[in-house]
């Protein structure tokens, strides 16, 4: 929306023009990912193997779903820190419904669908609470979701203690595990799910009335209200979508781990926000795309994987990830300032 509108200014020639084209391109992060991939390939040729590619993909999928939800919230100039706690809470609630060790619906045919519905409901409920506090009570999103994050992270652990002596709820039904690890037509179930979520999210943002309204609320909330946009409901919708996406991610993570665990996703909060921002979505609202988030997640996971394969220690992975987020932010700032000159 923003980046494309810069085209058609006075054109310098040659390499500078190419540089400008790259800098303002929507696909900048994709190009960076490719460049990075090619750059590390000589050091870790295995990166190009089907095995590693599959791993990168499967690492990307759940992260991508949460990040897409986060994109919605950032577009309305909010932030949702509670997503990791939603992942954890949904995981243990879902597991408690379907586990063979005394789950609410253990051994019933409804166990798996029931559990999945319960998980999505958890996400929706927490998202609805966030939305309610931000809209109706006028509380800042950062603090609201910070407290819900603290609360439900704790609640997930507490909840687990009612169902098991150990730290996680195991013995999930075969049907659920297959769902998480199987494939349909050679394509993993998870990929089908994420593709569906991604396409739906893209269509909502790019084509639907709600999408236009989300951008409007992020760009100028008062102008949106004066133009008849139901601002409160739109913002609530963003938080609801974020909650639901986090719940879907929880289903994917739980399926992969085959247990419901309350510390699921605890460490990925900064990855999620980092990936969305790397993609180019603004923290100040009004700007963002699903495709950008896909690129952002790809870039982050690519770096993660390559660094691990390079045999770099944990500290380098941390530090380099940080540098990448910083670099992306600097590029975005430069781009915005450059664009402001016209």
């Amino acid at each position: 929306m923003i980046a494309t509108s810069i085209a058609g200014e006075a054109r310098p020639s040659g390499p500078r023009r190419l540089l400008r084209h790259l800098l303002f391109s929507e696909y900048l992060v994709l190009y960076l990912s490719l460049a990075y991939f090619l750059a590390v390939l000589p050091f870790v040729p295995q990166m190009a193997s089907a095995e590693v590619m599959r791993n990168i993909l499967s690492d990307m999928l759940p992260l991508l779903v949460v990040a897409i939800g986060q994109t919605f919230v950032l577009i309305v100039a909010g932030i949702d820190l509670s997503v990791t706690s939603i992942i954890a809470m949904a995981s243990v609630v879902g597991a408690s419904v379907m586990t063979g060790d005394g789950g609410y619906l253990a051994d019933s045919a409804l166990a798996v669908p029931g559990a999945m519905i319960a998980m999505v409901l958890v996400g929706l409920a927490i998202g609805a609470f966030n939305g309610f506090c931000v809209n109706r009570l006028g509380m800042p999103p950062f603090i609201v979701t910070l407290t819900t994050m603290m609360f439900f992270s704790g609640a997930a652990i507490w909840f687990t203690t009612f169902h098991t002596e150990t730290s996680s709820i195991a013995n999930l039904p075969h049907g659920f595990v297959v769902l998480g690890q199987g494939n349909l037509g050679g394509v993993p179930h998870a990929l089908w799910v994420v593709a569906a979520v991604g396409i739906a999210a893209h269509l909502v943002l790019a084509r639907s009335v709600l999408g236009r309204r989300l951008y409007a609320c992020g760009q100028n909330r008062r102008a949106a209200a004066v133009s008849g946009v139901p601002v409160g409901r739109v913002i609530a919708a963003a938080f609801l979508i974020s909650g639901a996406c986090a719940a879907v991610a929880s289903i994917l993570y739980t399926g992969r781990l085959q247990t419901g665990t309350p510390i699921l996703g605890q460490t990925i909060l900064l990855d999620i926000i980092g990936a969305v921002v790397i993609g180019g979505t603004s923290l100040f609202g009004g700007k963002g795309k699903v495709l950008w988030t896909v690129f952002g997640v790809l870039f982050l996971v690519l770096i993660d994987t390559s660094l691990k394969m390079l045999g770099l220690s944990l500290f380098s992975v941390f530090a380099i990830k940080g540098c990448v987020i910083l670099l992306a932010a600097v590029i975005d700032a430069v781009r915005t300032r450059y664009a402001a000159r016209f």
Binding site: F284, F315, A319, L326
Partner: peptide
């Protein structure tokens, strides 16, 4: 100087700082 949002800068340096400490 570079006018990047504080939230994102300090988020990144959080990673970098932890990385340095682990190093």
């Amino acid at each position: 100087r570079l006018r990047v949002a504080a939230f994102i800068v300090t988020l990144a340096t959080l990673f970098i700082g932890r990385g340095l400490a682990l190093w």
